[in-house]
């Protein structure tokens, strides 16, 4: 049987969901691959929901909201944009093709367009092919860890405010600069997670053994180990042959 992409859509109640209904009323025919979760606003969609969908074997996820400026909740779709921007970046970092996530706007009057958007997205995912669950599942799980870090969520949540109104010191931040900070944080979290999984795989672990497993140099790994220890996430158990051996804290080793 030909490959049929498995797609999930998060549709905002006021625009995209209404547009999807209008597509029905207008009998617009489009591929039957997507299942819909209705949310009141696209701003409700947490990056965690999207990554969760990939972890659960979906090949593509669409987040559809109102056109910029038309949000029923004023700014919800701008928030959605920031959150999906984070999600795209996290997907890129953990190795799930960001093209599998679609963020687009469909108004309540755009039944025809809704059909087109879904048709195009279905074709796009069909070309990308199925997402290998065994490979993507753990990647998505790492992504979820990153997207649930309070520091990153804070940065994303505050982004619009800091760019538009400035930080607590009144300095307006440059958007590109903020994006760099965000990216660094994602990379950091990703690397920390890599290290944590390396320890998880062979605990206790030493800096050289971790460095080999995660393909980083020992100096970098060591810096992360200090960070992680300060954050109370790893603990130096003992020292064997001059090499400190670390174990994870607050997590049951698998």
């Amino acid at each position: 049987m030909a490959y049929e992409p498995k797609l999930l859509g998060f549709l905002c109640n006021w625009c995209a969901y209404a547009g999807a209904d209008l597509a029905g009323v207008s009998r617009v025919q489009y591929p039957p691959n997507m299942r819909v979760i209705r949310v009141m606003c696209s701003g409700r969609v947490d990056p965690l929901h999207v990554l969760e969908a990939f972890r659960n074997g979906m090949d593509g996820v669409a987040v559809l909201g109102c056109h910029p400026g038309d949000c029923h909740y004023l700014t919800g779709n701008y928030q959605a944009e920031r959150k999906m921007d984070l999600t795209f970046r996290v997907m890129e970092k953990v190795g799930i093709d960001p093209d599998r996530l679609l963020l687009d706007w469909v108004s309540a009057a755009e039944g025809q367009r809704f059909g087109e958007v879904i048709t195009d997205f279905t074709e796009r995912i069909r070309e990308l092919g199925p997402l290998d669950a065994a490979d993507a599942g753990p990647k998505a799980a790492v992504g979820e860890k990153i997207a649930s870090m309070d520091r990153i969520r804070w940065l994303v949540g505050k982004e619009r405010d800091m760019v538009d109104h400035g930080n607590v010191y009144g300095d307006k931040l440059d958007e590109a600069e903020l994006k760099d900070i965000l990216w660094n944080n994602i990379v950091n979290e990703y690397n920390r997670e890599l290290i944590r999984s390396a320890i998880r795989a062979g605990s206790p672990a030493t800096v050289p053994s971790i460095a080999e497993a995660v393909e980083m140099d020992t100096a970098t790994v060591f810096k992360y180990m200090i960070d992680l220890e300060n954050a109370g996430q790893v603990h130096m158990m003992d020292i064997v042959d001059d090499d400190p051996r670390y174990i994870l804290v607050g997590e049951v080793s698998e």
Binding site: G43, D46, Q79, W154, V156
Partner: peptide
């Protein structure tokens, strides 16, 4: 509150749901 859920999707501590 109009229930849009923006706060829930942003909360750094995942303390808000809708």
């Amino acid at each position: 509150c109009k229930g849009c859920g923006v706060c829930g999707a942003s909360c750094p501590k995942l303390a808000i749901t809708m």
